[in-house]
Design a protein around this nucleic acid. Structure first.
Length: 112
DNA sequence: ATGCAAGGGAAGTTAG
DNA sequence: TCTAACTTCCCTTGCA
């Protein structure tokens, strides 16, 4: 998913959330659309995978990844919810992620 | 108090 | 060269 092109952090997070084997690190919070929460014990595993995906020199950590997440609040992709380790995709972001997931990749189109 | 989690300014990196 | 999208650093604030 999201191959061929620069992967954005929110793409990666969505990908992790759609993967059941990653549930011990991040998972959707049932009862609220687009809300997800990191595991307090495994949050750095997701971060490390993100850092590897990007090919960063230094290992990625939750602290550094969350800094990027806070910038998303300013650009409107993801917002922080008042609960511990939980965030929420904006409706627009969630919509485009789902739309992309529903076949655009298979038709060879880039994520927009 | 004490340990996380959150917030954020600011310089640095990298791809396009 | 310039910008976007982080990345790295590191210090302050908030909360249980």
């Amino acid at each position: 998913m999201f191959a061929g092109g620069k992967v954005r952090l929110f793409h990666f997070l969505f990908e992790m959330l759609e993967d059941p084997t990653m549930a011990h690190c991040v998972s959707w919070v049932p009862a609220a659309a687009g809300v997800f929460r990191f595991s307090s014990t495994n949050k750095d595993q997701v971060a490390a995978l993100w850092g590897q995906r990007k090919g960063n020199k230094r290992p990625m950590t939750y602290q550094k990844m969350s800094r990027a997440l806070r910038n998303y609040a300013r650009s409107g992709e993801i917002f922080k919810v008042k609960k511990k380790l939980t965030y929420q995709f904006s409706r627009e972001t969630l919509m485009s992620l789902h739309k992309f997931q529903q076949g655009d990749l298979l038709r060879g189109r880039d994520f927009v």
